[in-house]
């Protein structure tokens, strides 16, 4: 699982050298941010269902034209589809907060997933909209500390960027 630590060690090992000073500085930086990441991970884990539901509910409300034109013609359709996948992405974001790197999203949510979405003609817009809402909705210190929110938002941006 890719993290700052595993990346540094893999690069050093590939070159047959010890980690450099700048390598150690990046590991140190990652460790210093660990408390904020774990705070965000804990808050997200305890509130995952609500965050996911709020994201897609708000998405529906915000975009009146997000009204499924499928046979059922019901917004419930879109909400159900979106809820499952948003939860999946939030779980991967939570793993990334714990790992201290983007490995879980890279390996389980991005690599190849873009190809699958394109091949099957699946829409990415609802995910992007819902995750964007989650990013804009977070508030410090109401939801978590400012540093924790920074870590969380960075990963939401990473997911939005990679999905689109």
């Amino acid at each position: 699982m890719k993290s700052v630590v595993t990346t540094v060690i893999a690069a050093a090992d590939a070159a047959g050298r010890f980690p450099s000073t700048s390598d150690l500085e990046s590991v140190q930086g990652s460790i210093q941010r660990a408390a904020a990441r774990l705070e965000a991970a804990e808050k997200l884990a305890s509130n995952l269902d609500n965050v996911a539901r709020e994201a897609y509910d708000a998405c529906i409300k915000k975009y009146p034209y997000l009204n499924n034109a499928g046979e059922a013609n019901s917004t419930e359709t879109f909400k159900a589809k979106c809820a499952r996948d948003i939860k999946h992405y939030l779980r991967l974001i939570q793993y990334c907060l714990v790992v201290g790197g983007t490995g879980p999203l890279d390996e389980w949510g991005i690599a190849g997933q873009r190809e699958v979405y394109r091949a099957l003609g699946l829409p990415t817009a609802p995910y992007v909209e819902a995750l964007s809402f989650a990013r804009n909705r977070g508030c410090a210190p109401r939801d978590m500390s400012a540093q924790a929110l920074t870590e969380y938002n960075a990963l939401l941006d990473y997911a939005i960027n990679s999905l689109s």
Partner: peptide, 16 residues
């Protein structure tokens, strides 16, 4: 190509 999900947003061409 499965196009079930293409017409998701009820937007007209002009609006889009």
């Amino acid at each position: 190509m499965d196009k079930r999900f293409f017409n998701f947003f009820n937007l007209s061409e002009d609006e889009a």
